[in-house]
Design a protein around this nucleic acid. Structure first.
Length: 417
RNA sequence: GGGGAGGUUCCCGAGUGGUCAAAGGGGGCAGACUGUAAAUCUGUUGGUUACGCCUUCGAAGGUUCAAAUCCUUCUCUCCCCA
């Protein structure tokens, strides 16, 4: 017999807290449950730090339940104080709407937005036109400031300073849950564990408005951390975005390929659709064999986000670049960022520092100088350590020059007429 | 509204007239070691035409041969009181 959606979530480690697990189990066994997760449209693209809830949605949807993705068009104009040390930037409605539509496309890779399968709504639709006084009278009346201040999230912010506008966030998010409960019969809200307070507040609001018998349950996911303590989904250059124009599939693949040993099993459960049994097998690997599991993680994850073809290309490119010998010939060229340079410049010869500085490999000539001096610069896999070296047309292979900085970063210089 | 403390380089944080492109730590980059891991060690970390020069210590003025450091005004943040 098939596992229930909730069982899948539990065995994969998605459950951090639940307001009433018994009730949720009963509810999910007895009906198709409509549930929601909030998404903040604060950026043009989602990044992998956002993804845990989406994978959870996928699993529940697969088990027959109906997800609602709520784009926080309205709430993102306020800023959620939970767990944040600073107030967030406020965006315009236009920016938010633009972000929301690209987010829906990305979300579509993980959950099915087919007919009656899932719903996407923007809370600006109901928050945008709210009347302040009536909101206070209808919703504000149900909130106790004393109780709100007792939440850990607010306590922390009270130390640092909390703006009134942010203090309202919880009311708005609670109102979302109420609204969805009324309009769509949404009975479950899920979110990261930092949302616990907001979720509970929403449940309480529903009970107060709709009566104590109203069904409303909250569930939170653990905040995913990396074994090295860094933030999930962040690299030095910024977040690991799903948008291929902001973060190439190859780099995306590499991000997952390079996760810490200790994180592989966890990430396989969170971020792939592999069966739990198969993951268990992969988790048994030790030593350098763990690389097999990492490769699988990277491949599966890239396939989900960028498609089978891109995943295969990234895998090939990575193998070509890192397997002994490292022949760049087999590498997929499209996956490596490039810059166009006129053939006349190449024929005249370009100084090694200038060449690196005009690629994305180095941000200045000074940086390029250091790279060369420290032995990290390679042209067509040949180390160049002379800062005065000049690269000319003899370095061009198949119409381009392959540059490498350090061990993992490649860049192509494409010669054009 | 009153009083106090502050805004320093990617971040945290020293620096209270020249020796400051600015200690230390974190982060980043590179090298060694490895398994495209972790940990560790080493170097490096504003720009440049690399001698020197230019830009940088919240903003704008001023004092001075010389200012991150002193003065004035402005601005932002935090704390206490009301």
């Amino acid at each position: 017999m098939a596992k229930s959606g909730l069982e899948v979530l539990k065995e994969r480690g998605f459950v951090q807290q639940c307001t009433d697990m018994d009730a949720l189990e009963k509810l999910m066994d007895s009906e198709r449950v409509t549930f929601y997760v909030g998404v903040d449209p604060t950026g043009a693209s989602l990044h992998i730090g956002h993804m845990v809830p989406f994978f959870a949605m996928h699993h529940l949807q697969k088990a027959g339940h109906r997800p609602i993705a709520v784009v926080g068009g309205g709430t993102s104009m306020i800023g959620d104080p939970s767990g944040k040390s600073d107030m967030r930037k406020m965006l315009t409605i236009e920016q938010i709407n633009e972000n929301a539509s690209s987010i829906k496309d990305q979300l579509g890779k993980i959950i099915d937005f087919g007919e009656d399968q899932a719903i996407m709504v923007n809370n600006y639709d109901w928050l945008g036109g709210l009347n302040y006084l009536s909101f206070l009278r209808d919703i504000g009346i149900h909130f106790s400031v004393n109780r709100m201040l007792s939440f850990e999230a607010y306590k922390q912010r009270l130390e640092k300073g909390l703006n009134f506008i942010e203090f309202n966030y919880q009311l708005l998010q609670s109102y979302d849950f109420l609204k969805l409960n009324q309009d769509y019969g949404c009975k479950l809200q899920m979110g990261g564990d930092d949302q616990w307070g907001n979720i509970v507040a929403g449940m309480e609001l529903i009970r107060r408005v709709e009566g104590p018998e109203a069904e409303a349950i909250g569930l939170t996911f653990p905040l995913v951390t990396r074994a090295d303590g860094k933030k999930m989904g962040k690299t030095e250059k910024g977040a690991v975005f799903l948008d291929p124009s902001m973060f190439s599939p190859y780099e995306f693949f590499q991000y997952w390929r390079n996760v810490a040993d200790a994180d592989v099993g966890k990430f396989l459960k969170f971020f792939t659709f592999l069966e739990i049994e198969e993951i268990a097998e992969l988790e048994k690997l030790e030593g350098s064999d763990i690389n097999v599991a990492k490769e699988r993680l990277a491949f599966e994850q890239t396939r989900i986000i960028h498609g089978e073809e891109e995943a295969a290309k990234a895998l090939e490119a990575a193998k070509a670049a890192f397997t002994s010998g490292g022949g760049e010939g087999a590498m997929d060229k499209d996956s490596i960022p490039s810059v166009d340079v006129p053939s006349s410049e190449i024929e005249a010869g370009i100084g090694i520092m200038d060449l690196f500085a005009r690629t994305g490999l180095c941000s200045s000539r000074g940086e390029a100088r250091r790279l060369v001096q420290q032995g990290g610069a390679r042209v067509n896999e040949v180390q160049i350590s002379d800062i005065d070296a000049v690269v000319g047309s003899d370095a061009v292979v198949d119409g381009e020059i392959l540059l490498k900085a350090g061990k993992k970063r490649y860049f192509r210089v494409v010669v054009i007429d």
